[in-house]
Design a protein around this nucleic acid. Sequence first.
RNA 1: AGUUCGAUUGUGUAACGGUAGCACAACAGACUCUGACUCUGUUUGUCUAGGUUCGAAUCCUAGUCGAACUACCA
Length: 555
Amino acid sequence: MSEEKSLNFLEEIIEEDIAAGLHGGRVHTRFPPEPNGYLHIGHATSICLNFGLARKYNGKCNLRFDDTNPTTEETEYVESIRNDIKWLGFEWDNEFYASDYFEKLYEFAVTLIKKGLAYVDDSTADEIAAMKGSTTAPGTNSPYRDRSIEENLRLFEEMKDGKYKDGEKTLRAKIDMAHPNLLLRDPLMYRIKHEHHHRTGDKWCIYPMYDFAHGQSDSIEEITHSICTLEFIHHRPLYNWFIEKLGIFPSKQYEFARRNLTYTVMSKRKLLQLVNEGHVNGWDDPRMPTVSGMRRRGYPAAAFRRFSDTIGIAKRENIVDIGLLEFCVREHLNKTANRVMAVLDPVKLVITNYPEGTTENFTAENNPEDENAGSRVIPFGRELWIEREDFMEEAPKKFFRLTPGNMVRLKSAYIVKCEGCVKDDAGNVIEVHCSYLPESKSGNDTSGLTVKGTIHWVSVEHARTAEVRLYDRLFKVEDPANAEGDFKDHINPDSMQVLSKVYIEPELAKAGVGDTMQFMRKGYFCVDLDSTAERIIFNRTVTLKDAWAKEQKKN
RNA sequence: AGUUCGAUUGUGUAACGGUAGCACAACAGACUCUGACUCUGUUUGUCUAGGUUCGAAUCCUAGUCGAACUACCA
């Protein structure tokens, strides 16, 4: 009843603000991606945070594209970002673009010039860098710092009107070239870029810097709690300076530590390299930590939300075990995925005392965790495909599967007793022979026997075939970005394994793209979008926990 | 070196001067027509040194370690 969930530091701040009646107790957040790439798992947790906070406090959350750099941004990304957010289960209250505010931002700049707080600088990029100083040494004033307000106004207008070439002039804030925070040493507000913008076209040839756009965009939208990652903590005083000098709505920024994941890289630059250099097959390769990749892999949206919730939020550096994400995926899929049987590495099992040419239909429960999931019919016959690893001629003590003399349950069918196997000249097992116990029929078992093992199977006569793609971690080391050498040195060469001939139960052949199911004892799978009418392809989303594999590792 | 932020079991996160808890992982067991799920139990932690206090993870001081910042990127 009184299960009190503790608050994270952002929730604490918000609840204090609400209690104090700040902004009338209103909560308004935003998710501000730059449309220059695909969303990854880091964005996904940020989305869950921002939209989740708004949801929890009956507030609003905007989607705002920070599109202040026309050279890197494209509409294609806008579309994919919108898709991903919706898929994650969130809806934005408003969709805005920083470019919506270009006019307003221009006016802000003029206002600051008129107040003597901004100036046009003719220095080159190199000169500006040289005058910047360093962490230990103060910077020096630009020779153009003291131009008159009238001259600055004229020059800035001429910049806007296209009288100058790229890089010839910039507009800078006049703050303090000796400030210990480098970002307050007369930061650039506007630069000249004669570039086509994905939304404003050729209307502008000057574009605001992110730092002159982000804080004011929050302010224009009257965002009450502007949440971002730790690296923007140094920018906060600058945003506050602009807000204060402009006298506009006081949005407040709060920073949290971005959440890293073991065995993955998260930076856009690195992900781009993986795609461009062909280490993966595109942005939505199921091995990619992108939202589109993980979606294709079969990770349910609910698992992302649960994961984001579970890992919490704080300000310290962290690297979250990807096993926790996988746990969330399994937890959700266990409750929702129907069970089916598929044999990935087949060997033939012959039931020597079963009448030839006979088929029986068994009924199997679709999901023991969900009584509304119904059941299906599975055909059974004298010859079955079973998993090669489920038979051992000479087995260790705790092997509960097929080994001569041992009995197992064929899931949803009969108990069989292993009698031996047939081998080819090279000594490979090509058939396993068993006898069945007719009175052990599933659902009507009068044998009185209990067996330790149950294995899955597919009837040879009725089996359909499929391609299965098994995925493993993309990297061999926990923290590839910080490991020795280049991060690509640590790519796992076995991150994808393709099984071209897997036997599946006939019902399964009807599954459609995106359908998710559990292959009993093998893991969760989903139908890949590469599937065609002739060939169905399954991705392995995640394995089941495997206590037997762990047991074996010990020896 | 400067500024800013941070430090709680293997990982992540709580405890807001009063029993260091939760989840994952690990380990042991129960259950099982999935060696899954579920259930039970166990191990492991307050960066260091001082101080304040009846009492400190929490407050103070000093140190140590880590991260971010010095793009006409966001």
